[in-house]
Design a protein around this nucleic acid. Structure first.
Lengths: 153, 153
DNA sequence: GTATATTTTAGAATAATGTTCTGATTTTTG
DNA sequence: CAAAAATCAGAACATTATTCTAAAATATAC
């Protein structure tokens, strides 16, 4: 199945990025289309994987996950091996794992409750990942913007 | 209004993180509660700002935003000034702006279509932000995990 | 260019869900 | 312990989701 999005699809994606819980009739109204037509488009976007899912954005402070950190990790993985990456991705507090260009190998983003939890995580999880050579941790003092929205043009 | 979440609230948050489009009756069924009760809880979580919003996750490749970069930016802003941060946050392709500890000042995350767009952005936007002293760009080769889910325990 | 196939759409009917209200129950507070 | 506040369930009603069919539009093949 091919991914070929027209302008109507892009508008749908923009609206669902803005508010994933918009009702289908409201969506249809914005597009001046029948609800059945927009519903079918949304379903197809889901099937094609263009829409990966729908998620609520939670205030980290409210659930005691106020500490945000980025960690650069250097490993001695061979190029084909992604064992370290998968081990890192399996950690619940780790939200993102990126393979990056440059001297380091991975950049991860994690949300935690406290420096204590960070140390515990390093001791209990990171130390178990054999191939890790070094880590550089960057602590976020304040987040000015944190959006999941991709700019769709 | 105080933020005091009980176990039921946390379950709601977990479920809405998993699938923001879950119907209220399905939510109620999972919790073995009446729909009216769960609806009221969800509304209150929204009012309190615990739930910030609902968003669809879009495949970046499908909308031609496949290039992910992290940029460390050093500015000569005074401590109280966040003009640079606001200017950066206003750029649509910039998804995140974090004030970080350490030698650099800001870490931003941006999604773009190509290296060309990155250069254009640097020339047309970043160069206009007066206080920027230096930039270090880290290019993501592959994303192993990219989740918006906060681990709620 | 025309015929055929495919996709997209609207409209109607029905099932499912959202929403509001009330009163009962539970929990909190003083 | 009593009063106040919060939470909850159930019912009634409004809104929405979903499915189906046929028409329209679009794409494809000849």
């Amino acid at each position: 199945m091919e991914i070929n999005l027209d302008e109507t699809d892009l508008i749908i994606l923009r609206l669902l990025q803005e508010d994933a819980r918009i009702t289908n009739v409201a969506l249809a109204a914005q597009l001046k289309m029948a609800p059945s037509a927009t519903l079918e488009r949304v379903r197809k976007l889901e099937e094609k994987g263009v829409i990966r899912g729908y998620s609520a954005g939670i205030d980290p402070l409210a659930v005691d996950k106020d500490l945000l950190v980025f960690i650069f990790i250097k490993t001695k993985d061979s190029f084909a091996d992604d064992k370290s990456a998968r081990s890192l991705a399996a950690i619940p507090q780790v939200m993102e794992v990126h393979h990056i260009a440059g001297d380091d190998c991975y950049l991860i983003k994690a949300r935690l409750s406290s420096p204590t939890e960070l140390m515990e995580l390093k001791r209990s999880r990171f130390s178990k990942i054999a191939n890790i050579v070094s880590m550089r941790t960057t602590i976020v003092l304040e987040t000015v913007k944190e959006s999941t929205h991709i700019s769709i043009d």
